[in-house]
């Protein structure tokens, strides 16, 4: 992969069940992720997806190229720009820098309406060296 190349896009259908499963695995039971009545009362269309779950899917999109047996994601910075509700999302990104044994990826998540809801910078370091 060269600088400027895009990651293959990862399409994920995030369901309410996925949020329950994630809440249990991550010990994150904040009501924003399961209390639909509360969220609608606050003006949201639905519950919001755990930011970390979206981030995890974005990491999967990147590790499809930077395979974990060769690369370790050792730093990342994520911004949750808009609430993400359950439904189909697309994760993608672009290789923005290649410096020795480090690769920098600029990633994004788009919701069903095409809005960019999450952006991230991810830095991968080679586990065993070499490009």
């Amino acid at each position: 992969m060269r600088v400027g190349d895009n990651l293959p896009e990862l399409l994920v259908e995030i369901t309410h069940r996925d949020l329950i499963r994630y809440a249990g695995a991550a010990n994150d039971y904040l009501p924003q992720h399961w209390d639909r009545d509360m969220m609608r009362g606050d003006g949201f269309a639905d519950v919001v997806v755990h930011g970390w779950l979206g981030c995890a899917h974005l990491c999967r999109a990147a590790t499809a190229v930077f395979a974990p047996d060769r690369w370790v994601l050792d730093r990342y910075a994520v911004r949750y720009r808009r609430p993400l509700h359950p439904g189909p999302v697309v994760c993608g990104g672009r290789l923005v820098a290649c410096d020795g044994e480090t690769r920098e990826v600029s990633g994004w998540i788009r919701d069903a309406g095409g809005a960019t809801v999450t952006t991230a910078s991810m830095w991968f370091a080679a586990r065993t060296g070499g490009c």
Binding site: V12, D18, R21, Y22, G24, A25, A26, N27, D28, W52, L53, C55, A56, H57, C59, R60, T63, A67, P68, D69, L73, Y76
Partner: peptide
Amino acid sequence: LACGETWPAYVDGDEAAPTFISALQTE
């Protein structure tokens, strides 16, 4: 598995998936 991971080392629990640190945040 809750993250939809398919990489064997993550799914087998040999190594934490990249965002696992989040699972330790609440406590």
